[in-house]
Nucleic acid binder design. Structure first.
Lengths: 218, 218
DNA sequence: TAGATTGTTAATCGATTAACAATC
DNA sequence: TAGATTGTTAATCGATTAACAATC
């Protein structure tokens, strides 16, 4: 393996990228670990450690914005186009199909699938909606390796199995289910409700603290 | 503070909840830490440690599905309704408005806002779309504390500031920007592109490994 | 040169795993 | 009772922070 960065570092790279992009847009050439750290609410030395692995720092000046962005893009594989199929043309599926931003990350959704025949034939974004049963044949023919699941929880496991049988080995899963798939299949769960629950917990927590704080005052 | 669970535990609670729900649907009364661990691809002792804080385990039998779910719901504050405003009725905003699942988590999106007048007046899900300038007044009047941002990156910071000025203290942010807000404001970033980047990295990584593996064979 | 800022090492912290006694 | 399974302690691992020397 050329790069084998710590998992925590990898999950911060997209955030650095995002910030660097906005700095680039504003015409900044260099940025310091301190500035980045403040924007991300983390420690400056963590920024330095993360970016040291990219080897793009310059003492006294900081990090060159464009170069650092480019390194991140390479490491994350944003520059290699990955063609994907999406299954489940509900409101979330539609939103993902319509979103233009993913192509910056090398993702190209080439077709969408749904069991609802009234949706078949529509075009959303760049993708045409097709009948679900056409997926296996097309996936094989086009050599598709990535699948996006935006179906309801109840059918997601089935969809995942069909995808795997059709040669798909990386799944971006938006259904709130833990999919059971063979070990060689990559899964990335994007559980919106889990994110909400997290926010909800912190919210609750703060309410309780405030109440207690009030109670403690004499 | 009554509960102050480790951050890692909190982020797993929604996943336990999700799995327990599907077990309940299938009529299971009890489940062991081993079974849960397998479904989540984590260590059984981690499951026991997480759930011990809920105090719902029964030796020899495992965890009572319904009771454990209920505890999680209480801890995560899923049972308290939180009224929210959503700003940005694009395709993602529409998807969130249309999604029925959030009310299980205590979230009720009571209104949506957009600067595009052609969208004003529409009803999506249970929410009516209103003109953006009405947000501050309404938020104050209704005592809204939670905001959902689904606008493009470029205007997200501005929207966040308006929200904060209007009394909103918890923000669920879907725009790919790190928002700068006062310390007392809770932020939960839901960065889809970051998730994609993560999957993309693992995908790339595997490709490289495979290639190297092949190369090494004599 | 002096000063700012990186890169890197050691120290700390928190999360996960392993092991096993407690118990239903 | 014997066996299964939790709860909990100690050990390990990985991630973050603090400190500072290297350097442009």
């Amino acid at each position: 393996m050329v790069h084998c960065l710590p998992a925590a570092t990898v999950s911060r790279l997209p955030l650095y990228h995002q910030i660097l992009k906005s700095l680039l847009d504003r015409g900044r050439d260099f940025v310091s670990s301190d500035t980045l750290a403040k924007l991300m609410s983390i420690d400056p030395s963590l920024v330095r450690k993360d970016l040291a692995s990219l080897g793009s720092g310059t003492q006294r000046l900081g990090y060159h914005v464009a170069t650092t962005m480019a390194s991140i893009e390479t490491i994350l594989g944003m520059r290699n186009t990955k063609e994907a199929f999406l299954v489940g043309v509900g409101s979330l599926g539609r939103a993902l199909l319509a979103y233009r931003g993913f192509c910056d990350y090398g993702l190209k959704i080439v077709a969408a699938f749904d069991t609802d025949n009234s949706k078949v034939g529509q075009t959303i974004g760049d993708a045409k909606v097709m009948a679900a049963e056409k997926l296996p044949g097309l996936a094989r023919r086009l050599g598709i390796r990535m699948g996006i699941i935006t179906v309801p929880a109840g059918v997601a496991q089935h969809v995942a199995e069909v995808m795997v049988e059709s040669g798909i080995t990386a799944i971006w899963n938006f259904a709130p289910v833990m999919l059971e798939v063979p070990e060689f299949v990559l899964i990335r769960n994007e559980n919106l409700a889990a994110g909400l629950a997290r926010l909800s917990y912190d919210y609750e927590q703060r309410l309780n603290n405030t109440k207690e704080g009030e109670g403690e005052q004499p």
